[in-house]
């Protein structure tokens, strides 16, 4: 599985996700600087990592979405190359228009850094096929702007097309407002593109993919990708 991690100025989870990819796949991903417009043509996976690209100035992900590499990312998206945007990477995917909707300031206005529970809503994707939709999984979140919003037609489209990948839930797996850390509409924690090949999510699977870090619930996302793309 040939993967590239796009590195923006201010990315800070690029190495975390690279470590996880190397651990799961045995291969080093290509660390690709945002200013380089030429992406290799034989990639299986492009990762937009977490962090605070360009200092989160203007809007989170807005300036990264204008980076020289983004035109190549969009071309590869059209070809069906798998893409994973985590946290700031999700914000960048929304700002580029590769995913619908937007991520606004958290409902409680504070930056939140803690473990949350979520559940896979659909397992019919290359990302979530190793998750049990009946079980709550645990992953960290670390964001100030993770409050997913979209207009009603977009939300209906996401539901109708089975494009909600993850929802926040409580430890028992109940999708309730008390388990919604940031005010996201319909407890949405991650969404998919129309072809289900692009996933954007606010929680960090790469940060809980090694028992030495306190849990492995994130690892199944990467083992599923390896199985689908290797």
């Amino acid at each position: 599985m040939k993967a590239a991690v796009i590195v923006f100025p201010g990315s800070n989870c690029d190495r975390d996700v690279a470590v996880t990819l190397r651990d799961v796949t045995g291969l080093d991903p290509r660390m690709h600087w945002h200013a380089d417009p030429d992406l290799p043509k034989d990639l299986d996976l492009i990762v937009l990592p977490g962090g605070f690209s360009h200092g989160d100035y203007l809007r989170c992900g807005a300036m990264a979405a204008q980076a020289p590499v983004i035109a190549a990312v969009k071309r590869q998206a059209e070809r069906g190359v798998a893409m994973l945007g985590i946290c700031n990477g999700f914000q960048v995917l929304c700002e580029t228009g590769l995913l619908p909707g937007a991520l606004m300031r958290n409902r409680g206005l504070t930056y939140i850094c803690k473990d949350v529970h979520l559940k896979a809503v659909t397992t019919d994707t290359i990302f979530t096929s190793h998750y049990d939709p009946a079980k709550a999984i645990r992953m960290p979140i670390a964001h100030h702007d993770g409050n997913y919003v979209a207009d009603l037609p977009t939300l209906c489209m996401l539901e109708d097309e089975d494009r909600v990948a993850f929802r926040y839930c409580d430890a028992a797996g109940r999708v309730v407002d008390e388990a919604n850390p940031n005010g996201s509409t319909a407890n949405i924690a991650g969404i998919l593109s129309e072809n289900h090949r692009i996933l954007g999510m606010m929680p960090h699977p790469e940060r809980l993919a090694d028992p030495r870090l306190g849990g492995t619930d994130g690892r199944a996302l990467f083992t599923a990708l390896l199985e689908a793309l290797a």
């Binding site: 203007l58 807005a62 300036m63 700002e95 909707g101």
Partner: peptide, 9 residues
């Protein structure tokens, strides 16, 4: 349209 505003919101 390209940068300064996000016309989704």
């Amino acid at each position: 349209r390209r940068l300064l505003a996000n016309t989704v919101i």
